[in-house]
Structures are given as structure tokens and as C-alpha cells.
Design a protein around this nucleic acid. Sequence first.
DNA 1: GCTTGTGCTAGAGCCAGGTCTAGCTCCTAG
DNA 2: CTAGGAGCTAGACCTGGCTCTAGCACAAGC
Lengths: 150, 150
Amino acid sequence: MVEESVEEEAQFGIGQVAERTGLSVHALRFYEREGLFLNPVRRLSGGRRVYTGHDVDWLNVCIILRASGMPLPVLRRYTELVRAGVGNEPERLALMREHEARVTAQIAALTESLDLIRFKVAVYEDLRDGGESAARECHTPPTTRGTAAP
Amino acid sequence: MVEESVEEEAQFGIGQVAERTGLSVHALRFYEREGLFLNPVRRLSGGRRVYTGHDVDWLNVCIILRASGMPLPVLRRYTELVRAGVGNEPERLALMREHEARVTAQIAALTESLDLIRFKVAVYEDLRDGGESAARECHTPPTTRGTAAP
DNA sequence: GCTTGTGCTAGAGCCAGGTCTAGCTCCTAG
DNA sequence: CTAGGAGCTAGACCTGGCTCTAGCACAAGC
């Protein structure tokens, strides 16, 4: 096992990185092809990849951005900007703000959907115990405004 | 245009339904093949589909469930239960509760991701105007517990 | 010297969820 | 009669994001 040698920089094999990020080794190679690393991944003689602690940190950022629905092309663009270094912060800001907006919109949409879902849960619950719910043929909560029939 | 004839039941062509649901006509036919309608869609002589107001209501439910990430197989299962009628409400309740749990988990995950995203937005903002941010080489907010370096 | 473990590459395959096409059928209006 | 517009079917195709396979290369341990 390769663990923090002196103080220099931790190094990891692809399997170790997979373990600590939760990504598969396939996904790691795929991400590399997709240009999602800040620096070219070093290779051992023999061609094996060697990852640094920084790589793992960056991957964890990528994982969060992906989990929040950032598409790979956007993530790649962001990576390019960070890689290019100082000077493009305004563009990074714009990109992140757009992503923030998409994520908040997504949360809002989910929260709204949750209204219907909870309404249905409630209907089935009180149908189960007692059941004076008038909701037999109706699928939508009364709170859903619009599309009202005459 | 076909609009509410007597009081019987509104009827719509596929194009009209596409218009008022936002789904494409392709998607409507696809959903039908996938068994996402409560009743077999009626056909005119000539084979054209005729949808009722109930179909449109149900589609709107489907749209919300899909938007909240319910996979088609689960939505189909739910449709089957509703179609089967009275008696399986406990199973519907279970299904909806599971979905509710997935959605709240998803919201929680997005909200957590939002922490990182907002952190980055903040970093780039104060880098822009003033810029005493110490965040040059660091990608993660200090609030991210764990995986702390020595 | 052989097996086992870990890794490599190129490229094929897979899944979800639609989307699009070709070729045909109707109906209605001019 | 003819053209346009809406619709039909079966089935091919697409995008995104991985995932897997085949065939090969090392390095270490028995």
C-alpha cells in the first residue's frame, strides 16, 4: 500500500481512488478521457495511473457537481477554466451562478411535486384508517390551481 | 375544434393533448405503449386516438411523478394499481411513501450540493470585488467535515 | 516458472427515456 | 380531383453517462 510518504503528496492507484471516491475504475478512466482532471494524470513506468490527493479532492468536487445535475460538458468547461488558472474567475462565477439557478429551480420543482406525492400519501393513509376521504375518482389535490373545470 | 360538447366528457385529439400537457405526440404514443394510461385510449374509426379529460388529468399526475424522478416502471406499476381499482390502496401507499422518501432524499442531496455551489459563487464574487479570499488552491469549503489533511 | 492481482487500451454494449422516419390513411377545403 | 394537414404503425435512432469485454502487460509471491 502506498500511503503518505514524507509530507510531499499522497499517491494512489486507480483502485484506491475508486475506493475512496465511490467511482468505478471504469468511470475514473472515462472521466480522464473526458478531460475532467485538472492535471494530466501521471503514469508509472508500465503505464499505470498515479493519482494525487489533489486529484481526489477535485474528484470529490466533481462528484458533488455531477450529483447536483451538472452535465459533463459543463463540468468539463469548468475544469478547463480552473485549469487555465487566474484571470477567468468572472466566467467561472457566471457558470456557477447558472448552475446554482438550475439547482434551486430543481429543488423548487421537486418540492412542488412533493405536494402531490404527500397529498396522495395522505389520501391512502386516511382511506386505510377510517376512510372518509372524498378522493375516489380524483387524482389531483384541490390546492392545484388552474385547469379548473367549469 | 372539439370542446366540451354537452357536459358528457371533453374529448381531445393527440395534438390537442400534446399542446395542453407539453408532452410530444411521440411521447404520448410512447406512454400508451408503456401502459401509462388508466383506460385503453379510445379510437375513432380510422384508428385515431381520442383522449378524455380524465386522461389529461392523469397525464398531469404522470408528468409530476416523472418530474420528481419516478422511473417509468414504477409509474407503470402505480398505474396498474390504480387501474385495478379499490382494494390495493396499501400497496399504493407503500409505493408513494417510497417515492416520497426518494424525493426528500434527492432534495436533501441537492440542498447539500448547493452548499458547495454557493461557496464557490461566494469565493468568485469576493475575488472579483476586493479579493481577500484565501481560497486560491482550495476547492472545498472549510465546512466540509472529514477527509481532513494532517 | 507460474499464478494472482492489478492495471492498461480500444472499442463495444447498455439503459432510460424518448425522438424521428418512412410509408400509409383519413378528412376537409378549394 | 387534388392538396394539405393530422394521424397511424413499426421500428430505427439518439443522448447521456457510464459499464463491460477482450486481449495484453507487469510485479510479487509460492
